[in-house]
Simulated scan of single mutants.
Amino acid sequence: MEQPTTVLVTGATGFVGRRLVPVLVERGLQVRAMTRRPESYDGLGVPVGADVADEAALARALAGVEVAIYLVHSLDHHDFETRDAAAARTFGRVAAEAGVRQIIYLGGLGADDEELSPHLRSRREVEGLLGEAGVPVTVLRAAIVVGHGGISWELTRQLIKRLPAMIVPRWTSTRTQPIALDDIIRYLAGVIDHPDALGQVFEVGGPEQMTYVDMLTVASEVANGRSVPVVPVPVLTPRLSSYWLSFVTDIDVVTGRNLIDSMSTEVVVTDHRIRQVVPGEPLSYREAVQRALAERLREGQTV
Results as ranks from 00 to 15, higher is better:
89 R>E: 10
89 R>P: 00
89 R>D: 03
89 R>Q: 10
89 R>W: 03
90 T>G: 01
90 T>N: 08
90 T>K: 14
91 F>L: 07
92 G>N: 00
92 G>A: 00
93 R>F: 03
94 V>E: 09
95 A>F: 12
95 A>N: 11
95 A>L: 03
97 E>I: 02
97 E>M: 07
97 E>K: 04
97 E>D: 13
99 G>P: 10
99 G>K: 15
99 G>D: 11
99 G>V: 06
100 V>H: 14
101 R>I: 01
102 Q>T: 10
103 I>L: 10
103 I>N: 09
103 I>K: 10
103 I>H: 01
104 I>Q: 08
104 I>G: 09
105 Y>T: 13
105 Y>M: 12
105 Y>A: 08
105 Y>G: 14
105 Y>C: 09
105 Y>P: 14
106 L>W: 12
108 G>I: 05
109 L>F: 07
110 G>L: 02
111 A>W: 07
111 A>G: 03
112 D>F: 06
112 D>Y: 07
112 D>E: 11
114 E>C: 02
114 E>R: 05
115 E>K: 07
116 L>M: 08
116 L>A: 09
116 L>N: 11
116 L>Q: 12
117 S>W: 09
118 P>E: 03
118 P>N: 04
118 P>I: 13
119 H>E: 01
119 H>P: 05
119 H>F: 06
120 L>P: 07
120 L>F: 15
121 R>E: 07
121 R>I: 05
122 S>V: 07
122 S>D: 09
122 S>E: 08
123 R>E: 07
123 R>S: 10
123 R>M: 04
124 R>M: 05
124 R>P: 04
125 E>A: 10
126 V>P: 03
126 V>A: 12
127 E>K: 03
127 E>I: 02
129 L>I: 11
130 L>E: 02
134 G>Q: 01
134 G>M: 08
134 G>P: 04
134 G>L: 03
135 V>C: 03
136 P>Q: 08
137 V>T: 15
139 V>Q: 09
139 V>K: 12
139 V>E: 14
140 L>K: 00
140 L>F: 07
141 R>S: 13
142 A>S: 14
142 A>V: 06
142 A>T: 15
142 A>K: 00
143 A>Y: 14
143 A>L: 00
143 A>W: 01
144 I>S: 15
144 I>A: 15
144 I>T: 14
145 V>S: 11
145 V>P: 02
145 V>E: 10
145 V>N: 06
146 V>S: 14
146 V>Q: 00
147 G>N: 02
147 G>M: 02
147 G>E: 00
148 H>F: 14
149 G>E: 00
149 G>M: 06
149 G>L: 10
149 G>I: 01
150 G>H: 10
150 G>D: 06
150 G>I: 15
151 I>F: 13
152 S>M: 00
152 S>H: 02
153 W>A: 01
153 W>T: 05
153 W>Y: 11
154 E>D: 14
154 E>S: 15
154 E>T: 15
155 L>G: 10
